[in-house]
């Protein structure tokens, strides 16, 4: 058993972290947010590196990597809070890989993998604003274990997170039906959770750095336990988050019997932890954390928007309970009373 990234997967992570540190600075994120436009230069770079097609099989123009690698990329894009349509596009591509017929794959995947067409994924039973749907050329609408793929544009929505272009699906019954595939939904949950993990990890890292140098009463504020314990607790919560996300990525990738439960756990946990940790980071920065320039709000806003997206914490806990009930084959007769 090896419950950690392989050397190749770590190399992908290092490469993505390095590229985004240089090309997706908070200056660039802020500028995209203020102009309410994607960072087109960064998107061009991500396309040139093949990121939109990381999880798409090679015969349809992608790199044919697995959900773990896809999660690594998604996490790093969250860590950088990058402002491109990558998240929606990889979500759409990933769900099509598992739910589309080979004819549909042939038709849609090469342009998604190349980033020529931008994608998004929505849930039918949900009016939550969909990230990247505002300017998407292709939208996958998931319903139950099935769904549809549509080229009908979504209705753009301006949200508290202007670094992504959100939208609402106009007609969920538009487009062509897809095959039944629970993997499509599970995969999207993992990718979004990984992105949220990246957002939260960045917020914690920024807080560690800031409170280590910001002085009050003649000492760094991190020397006060009221501050350091807040950050320690955030680290504990993110340790749980990382374990849940990468277990889910592996489980869905290999078709483990725990895959759907694991994906539900990851999304339920990250829906709350990502918002809590990014919010906690604002507090840990003190007054400066509330300013526009401190940049923490980009992380907090996106974490907030992605929380209910594809189902929030309570929905996924409810789904999980149903799965646990089904999985409970033996009844435990031990009782405390």
């Amino acid at each position: 058993m090896r419950f950690m990234l392989s050397d190749e997967q770590s190399a992908i992570q290092d490469m993505a972290r390095e590229v985004l540190a240089a090309e997706s600075t908070f200056d660039r994120v802020r500028s995209a947010g203020e102009e309410r436009q994607y960072d087109s230069e960064l998107w061009a770079l991500q396309r040139s590196m093949g990121w939109p097609g990381v999880g798409v099989p090679q015969r349809w123009g992608g790199q044919g990597l697995g959900l773990v690698e896809l999660s690594v990329i998604a996490e790093e894009c969250g860590y950088a809070c990058s402002s491109t349509p990558l998240l929606g596009t990889i979500l759409a591509a990933t769900s099509l890989v598992s739910a589309a017929s080979s004819e549909q794959c042939e038709r849609y995947l090469p342009s998604l993998a190349a980033g020529e067409v931008r994608g998004a994924v929505a849930l039918t039973a949900d009016s939550t604003p969909v990230p990247d749907a505002g300017e998407a050329g292709l939208i996958v609408v998931l319903e139950g274990s099935g769904g549809r793929v549509s080229l009908q544009p979504a209705q753009p929505v301006e949200t508290i997170d202007p670094t992504l272009r959100y939208g609402r699906v106009v007609d969920p019954s538009a487009g062509e039906p897809l095959n039944q595939s629970p993997i499509a939904y599970d995969s999207t949950l993992v990718v979004v959770s990984a992105h949220q993990l990246g957002l939260a990890q960045r917020a914690l890292d920024l807080s560690v750095a800031y409170t280590s140098v910001r002085e009050q009463f003649g000492v760094p504020v991190a020397t006060f336990q009221a501050v350091s314990h807040r950050l320690a607790q955030a680290h504990v919560d993110l340790t749980a988050a990382r374990s849940l996300v990468y277990h889910a990525a592996w489980a869905v990738q290999v078709g483990d019997s725990e895959a759907s439960a694991s994906a539900a756990r990851a999304k339920a946990w990250l829906a709350e932890a990502s918002r809590t940790v990014t919010g906690s980071a604002i507090h840990a920065h003190g007054g400066i954390g509330f300013t526009w320039e401190a940049n923490l709000h980009w992380l907090f806003k996106r974490a907030t928007m992605l929380g209910p997206y594809l189902g929030g914490a309570r929905q996924h806990r409810s789904r999980l309970l149903d799965m646990l009930g089904t999985a409970q084959t033996t009844s435990h007769e031990t009782d405390h009373s």
Partner: peptide, 25 residues
């Protein structure tokens, strides 16, 4: 009750998985 129970299940699974992950590391 169901929501609280399931939250505790997730926390328990997160502990089990984190233990395995730390052993690996």
């Amino acid at each position: 009750v169901a929501d609280r129970f399931t939250d505790l299940e997730i926390r328990t699974r997160a502990l089990e998985l984190s233990a395995l992950r730390q052993i690996s590391e």
